[in-house]
Design a binder for these strands. Structure first.
Length: 870
RNA sequence: GCGGGCGUGGCGAAACGGUAGACGCAGCGGACUCAAAAUCCGCCGUAGCAAUACGUGUCGGUUCGAGUCCGACCGCCCGCACCA
């Protein structure tokens, strides 16, 4: 009997409407069931969704639907990371207000997401540019300010000359702005900062307690935080020619054990000592000036030649008052790491060695590699940084570097030259405070005022929100808030006098650092309802791209701690489980120098060679490498097109099949068609069987055919459950193909089957449909209905496998001779080793291999294998 | 340079130390059809008619047994990189 083909175009909107009407995915905070919070990184409303979104949200939706079916109270919200530069760029290019542009994009993208049939709670939706949201963010800012977690200081900043704004260190990639790609310059500005460094130690050590995070991400964060243990050591300046008001220079070192190999001290160009020394030395002043300016771009700094200038000053060795070393100003010493001063031990640090060779400074090895001869050991052009034994080091001789570290620390901590210890242990971090000031319009205004009388004053809470003005112009570069005629004018909440508003807005990474908390009570008067937020958080499963491994995830971890400090949350870690999915990649096509979109390309295959024809011209074009879908290479496939021609279920299924979710998936037309074939096949198998299942008996019988069906279904249930639990969607997909393959034959002959066999078939069909439902929810509803099941499949409980059906009565074991498989042996499931061994040894081919001899050894692993060693 | 990951058919990939290649894509053969599409059945690592042999980047090791564990090397991908 032929059935109608499944028509997703009709079915998908219909089921989406039914779910909506039933408010199936609206989550009540007090609903029964263990809470489970699934979250995918919310999108930036750039205009349209792309395949990366489809993959991300398909995965999250599988988890959400699965957990819901398992009886959890699932929170699965969606919102918009809506502030940011592209809206301003659009405003400049198209004369459209950023707000209009943003909300129009949101409307488009919301409709696209809805067409995917995601089980989202849209009642909790918000955009970070909603006044409601940034109002709460301003409250948070004032709380942070009050607690000393936000502060203002003058600092060198990364200035993006194209976007005309400041960038955080994290936003500078290879010396270029992460968004504009322009070489970043260094400028000095007064900026707002969050004290992320206060939490450095905790942010680092807590990584050890995030077992459900990818090791890769934890490692990247560890490196970013960059903890190093060292010693602060004060070097007195030789009294002979020191500057009047500076007596000493403090250096930070992680290798105090190599102090006896010291041959110079170097300070940063910005160091007070540089300035003092340059005062009476025009040449030095010129060097300092050049070094400070020298290469404003970070890229230049990295490749810049390492240069120094001898100040003529001498520093006294902390362990020998009669030993002095020259003090240099060096362009590679950074003022904002450690103390801005180092001592150089050329033998055991490559950079110091290069420097010493260049300026003819002594190179004295003090760590002897194992096996080397103390009398002859010398470093050539390569510094020795390995383990060994200290020598040429007086009281440290014979110690290991670690022991030497401790010995020096002890000696200098105790030494008391001027009423203070000469050194102290210190832990330094590479992590810097998070600069959040942005000189942009389309962001959350920083709610402070500048009063001539009172200085920087927080806006009064009753005056919040500080709203963005609507009437702005983007005719000129720079920050439109700065030149707004009236917006800046305000009243000082302290003295009542006139004050000017801060015109910096917050980095958009602030917006995304707490949105997951806001979702738990999106209408709360404060930033969160702490009780509700604490009940939902941490997010059980967070899913997004690896590109956020440092920025967004580190900021969110900090913000969660900051929100704890300000009483809005009571936890440290926002995301218990993190999954970073791979990208969607596609072949590229090129017509001469022009990239061609896949929709304009037809691929033909003959004799293993593939040729591409451009549809619009009929000409043959080149097939290029497989790359991340991007507008620049035009290798993008629009999700709308796919959904229109195949349906959302096909797109979802394809995204989940084939590639493991953490790896890149290659989007191919053939793959999508394969996925769609399965959609139709599943529909055919179920819908053609359905009429025969209506009259099924209540209980399945235990005849072999019925049991085989039941076993197949229950095994798949156990396997798919396990796979989804581990986010191995590709394996779950494979298992479902297997199940359908196993059911198709028996289902085709149901018209002659006994009622009991039909009962087994019915059970298998309902299990199959429910297993498929998280991935292809519309098709599942359609099948569910065809099977005559009541209620919605999306509300049906997850199938539970019966353990009895997962066991076999008999097992077939491979029999190996000397580790090579030579045959099989079928034994009862519970057979003991001795019985199996006896049976195996009686096999013809085993006897033949033995040739009358006794086996050297027989390995029997019940349920696994038999290996006869002859 | 440092750190991490990965190398398995034509392709995407499976495989608690236990039958390598499940499942899908592509391909090949057949059925149905006037024909095509769709669908169904079968084949599909290499060599060989076959029995069989050889096969998980290379070389070595551990083991009754290695894609999996250990060592060395080769290649690719990703992250970080004046951090004292």
């Amino acid at each position: 009997m032929a059935t109608e083909r499944y028509n997703p175009k009709a079915a998908e909107p219909r089921w989406q409407a039914v779910w909506d009407e039933n408010k199936l995915f609206e989550t009540r905070n007090d609903a029964p069931g263990e809470k489970y919070y699934v979250l995918e990184m919310f999108p930036y409303p750039s205009g349209r969704i792309h395949m990366g979104h489809v993959r991300n949200y398909a995965m999250g939706d599988v988890v959400a639907r699965f957990k819901r079916a398992r009886g959890h109270n699932v929170l699965h919200p969606m919102g918009w990371d809506a502030f940011g530069m592209p809206a301003e760029n659009a405003a400049m290019q198209n004369k459209v207000h950023p707000r209009e542009w943003t909300y129009a994009n949101i409307a488009t993208m919301r409709a696209q997401l809805k067409s995917m049939g995601l089980s989202l709670d849209w009642s909790r939706e918000f955009a970070t540019c909603d006044v409601d949201y940034y109002h709460r963010q301003q409250m948070l800012f004032l709380d942070l300010l009050e607690k000393g977690l936000a502060y203002r200081r003058k600092s060198k900043v990364n200035w993006d000359p194209v976007d005309n704004t400041v960038l955080a260190n994290e936003q500078v990639i290879d010396g270029r702005g992460w968004r504009s790609g322009a070489p970043v310059e260094q400028r000095e500005l007064t900026q707002w900062f969050f004290t992320i460094t206060e939490f450095a130690e905790d942010l680092l050590s807590a990584l050890d307690h995030l077992p459900e995070w990818p090791e890769k991400v934890r490692l990247m964060q560890r490196n970013w935080i960059g903890r190093s243990e060292g010693l602060l050591v004060r070097w007195r300046l030789d009294a002979a020619n020191k500057p009047a008001d500076i007596d000493e220079v403090e250096v930070f070192t992680t290798r105090p054990d190599t102090l006896f190999g010291a041959s110079f001290v170097a300070v940063a160009p910005d160091h007070p000592l540089s300035k003092a020394a340059a005062a009476g030395n025009p040449k030095l002043a010129a060097f300092v000036e050049e070094a400070r300016r020298g290469g404003t771009s970070a890229a230049e700094i990295e490749t810049a030649e390492k240069k120094g200038f001898d100040t003529g000053l001498r520093a006294v060795h902390p362990l020998d008052p009669n030993w002095t070393v020259p003090v240099y100003v060096a362009n590679f010493v950074l003022m904002d790491y450690g103390t801005g001063a180092i001592f150089g031990c050329p033998a055991h640090d490559q950079r110091d060695l290069d420097f010493a060779r260049k300026y003819a400074l002594p190179v004295v090895p003090v760590v002897l590699p194992e096996g080397a001869d103390a009398a002859t050991f010398d470093v050539g052009t390569e510094a020795f940084t390995g383990e060994g034994t200290l020598f040429h080091s007086r009281f440290l001789d014979g110690l290991t570097p670690d022991e030497g570290f401790d010995a020096v620390a002890k000696r200098l901590e105790d030494t008391d030259l001027s009423g203070r210890p000469q050194a102290k242990r210190q832990v330094n971090f590479r992590l810097r405070d998070w600069g959040v000031s942005r000189q942009r319009y389309w962001g959350c205004p920083i709610p402070v005022l500048h009063c001539e009388a009172c200085g920087v004053v927080p806006e009064a809470r009753e005056n919040l929100p500080v709203r963005l003005p609507d009437d702005i112009d983007f005719e000129k570069p720079g920050n439109p808030l700065d030149r707004h005629p009236t917006w800046r004018q305000a009243t000082c909440p302290q003295c009542g006098g006139p004050a000017l508003r801060e015109t910096d807005t917050m980095d958009t990474f602030v917006d995304s650092s707490w949105y997951f908390a806001r979702f738990t009570s999106p209408h709360a008067a404060g930033p969160t309802d702490p009780q509700i937020a604490n009940a939902w958080l941490p997010v059980n499963q967070y899913i997004g791209g690896i590109e956020h491994a440092i920025l967004h995830l580190l900021y969110s971890r900090f913000f969660t701690r900051a929100m704890r400090a300000t009483g809005h949350l009571d936890l440290d870690e926002p995301f218990k489980g993190l999954f970073t999915q791979g990208m969607v990649v596609h072949e590229t096509y090129r017509d001469g120098s022009e990239w061609v979109v896949p929709a304009d390309v037809s691929i033909t295959e003959a004799d293993g060679a593939r040729t591409a024809t451009r549809l619009s011209t009929g000409g043959q074009i080149a097939i290029g490498s497989i790359e991340k879908m991007s507008k620049s290479k035009k290798n993008v496939v629009d999700p709308d097109d796919i959904i229109a021609s195949y349906g959302a279920d096909t797109a979802r299924w394809f995204m989940l099949s084939d590639s493991p979710p953490d790896r890149d998936v290659i989007w191919t037309e053939a793959g999508v068609e394969g996925a769609h074939r399965f959609v139709q096949r599943l529909w055919r198998v179920v819908s053609e069987a359905a009429p025969h299942l209506a009259g099924a008996a209540e209980a399945p019988s235990d005849d072999p055919a019925a049991t085989a069906l039941r076993k197949a279904a229950h095994r798949a249930a156990a396997g798919v459950t396990d796979d989804i639990e581990r986010l191995a969607f590709n394996k779950a997909v494979a298992r479902l193909y297997e199940l359908v393959n196993a059911l198709a034959g028996p289902f085709a002959s149901l018209d002659t089957a006994a009622p009991e066999a039909r009962a087994a078939a019915r059970e298998a069909a309902t299990i199959l449909v429910r297993l498929v439902a998280p991935m292809m929810p519309h098709l599942a509803e359609e099948c569910w209905q065809a099977l005559g099941e009541t209620g919605l499949c999306a509300a049906a409980p997850w199938p539970v496998a019966e353990p009895a059906l997962l066991r076999d009565d008999e097992v077939t074991l491979p029999v190996q001779i000397n580790g090579k498989k030579r045959g099989d042996l079928t034994v009862p499931a519970g057979a003991d080793k001795a019985a199996i061994e006896a049976e195996a040894l009686a096999l013809d081919f085993v006897q033949a291999a033995l040739g009358g001899q006794a086996p050297k050894r027989v390995v029997v692993v019940p349920g696994r294998i038999i290996n006869v060693v002859v």
